[in-house]
Amino acid sequence: MALPKRIIKETERLVAEPVPGISAVPHEDNLRYFDVRIHGPASSPYEGGIFKLELFLPEDYPMTPPKIRFLTKIYHPNIDKLGRICLDVLKSNWSPALQIRTILLSIQALLGAPNPDDPLANDVAQHWKENVTAAIETAKEWTHKYATDTAT
C-alpha cells in the first residue's frame, strides 16, 4: 500500500531538518515504523544518556496518535517498566495537527520536567515525592547504566 502523502512528507522533513538531540529513522521494510533516539536534556538526570524508543504510525494516523514507547530502561515517574509514556498529547489531547516532530519534542521536554503528580510508574513517583534528591540520583545511575555507550 502506498504511504499517505503526509507520512512521506513528515519523514522527509525529519531527515531534512532534524531536531537537535532527536533522531527518527524509518525501517526500510516498514515505513510506518521508526527507530527513535532521544538525547537526555542538559541539566536533567538524563543528561548524557541516549534513549532508544520505537514509534509506530497506525493505519489511521494522523487521525489517531502515533504509538510510542521507550526501549531503553529509564527511571522516570511518567514512564513505566514497559516503556509506556504518560503524556496527554499521546492520548486524549492528540490532534491531527500535531506530528512526529512535536511528539518527540514533548517527550524530550518530559525528560527535562518529570511530573510525579501525574504518574504512570507509581513507585517511582512515590520515590520522587518523598525524596527528590535520592530519586534523581537513581535516575542518573540508570542513565549511566542503561543509556550510555558503556551500557551493554
Binding site: 515504523y33 520505537e54 514507547r69
Partner: peptide, 9 residues
Amino acid sequence: PTNGPSALT
C-alpha cells in the same frame, strides 16, 4: 487490537 509497537516486536 490494532497493531502497535508491541505487536511488531
